[in-house]
């Protein structure tokens, strides 16, 4: 059932139990229809502050549709949706100030340098230029990109671009970051490193909402929801889901749910 309350006892990071942290996203009966087709069929779920929430599903299950609605890139047909405590219909701009987004299509400016991209997005979010400079320095050191800061994005390997895109998506310290299949098309080692960044952001207090269809990545999430044909079929911690479906790993869980 989609709005089944879950018992959380799996807390690898953060000290406070999620339920006490409160909801940062709450979705009730989200519907998105294209003609007669339900891309999102009455979705209801809550995301706790500070957790890594995995949004799983086969291609075409409706993950991207839902994430785009939560980010304000698409409007829902109906439903009550609050993101970062703001209503997505009426407080769109407040929502946007508090979220970061990284789409599955790589979307930094290829014809700008690493440094110029950082400065542009920092500026757009209204960060003071001093802050942007400090953040840029930290970020470049962390990603070991300092020597490449004046290179055009176009010349960087995909894995670096994605790490950079993620870092830029959280440059303005959003409350939530939405990642839509952030690790598509990169090797397992780079994916692992990417998840290190996600953990780091989560530890810094940013809630992470991530869609993926890599089942090993699902294991890294605090909770996962599994979508099939526009509906949420399961929502729990990976541990509980594996128990519930008597599966060895998330792969089996997924196959059992999505058939």
């Amino acid at each position: 059932m989609s709005n089944k309350k879950t018992k959380i006892n799996f807390l690898p990071w953060g000290e406070t139990p999620e339920r006490e942290r409160g909801h940062i996203i709450s979705v009730k009966n989200l519907v998105k229809k294209y003609g007669d087709f339900y891309a999102n069929d009455h979705l209801s779920f809550d995301v706790y502050k500070g957790e890594i929430f995995g949004f799983l599903g086969a291609n075409g299950a409706g993950k991207t549709t839902a994430i785009r609605i939560l980010c304000g890139l698409s409007s829902p047909t109906s439903g009550e949706i609050k993101v970062a405590g703001y209503d997505i219909y009426t407080q769109t701009e407040k929502v946007k100030n508090n979220i970061g987004y990284m789409s599955q299509k790589f979307s930094l400016y290829e014809d700008l340098t690493v440094s110029e991209n950082i400065q542009f997005y920092g500026g757009i979010y209204g960060l003071p230029s001093k802050t942007v400079k400090e953040k840029e320095k930290q970020l470049l050191e962390k990603l070991e990109l300092t020597s490449s800061k004046n290179k055009l994005i176009a010349g960087l390997p995909l894995g670096w671009k994605q790490k950079l895109a993620f870092s830029i998506a959280i440059l303005h310290d959003p409350k939530i970051v939405f990642l839509d299949e952030p690790t598509g098309g990169v090797d397992p080692i780079t994916r692992r490193k990417f998840w290190d960044l996600i953990y780091e952001a989560a530890n810094g207090g940013i809630t992470v909402f991530v869609t993926t269809h890599y089942m090993d990545e699902a294991e890294y999430c605090n909770r996962v929801s599994i979508m099939d044909a526009g509906k949420i079929e399961a929502l729990d911690t990976p541990e509980n889901l594996k128990k519930q479906y008597k599966a060895k790993n998330m792969d089996e869980v997924f196959v059992k749910i999505a058939r």
Binding site: L73, E93, Y101, S103, L108, Y109
Partner: peptide, 13 residues
């Protein structure tokens, strides 16, 4: 076409 507009559209611009 490049998809960069999405990234701008999630900002408070």
């Amino acid at each position: 076409e490049m998809g960069t507009i999405e990234q701008l559209n999630v900002t408070p611009i």
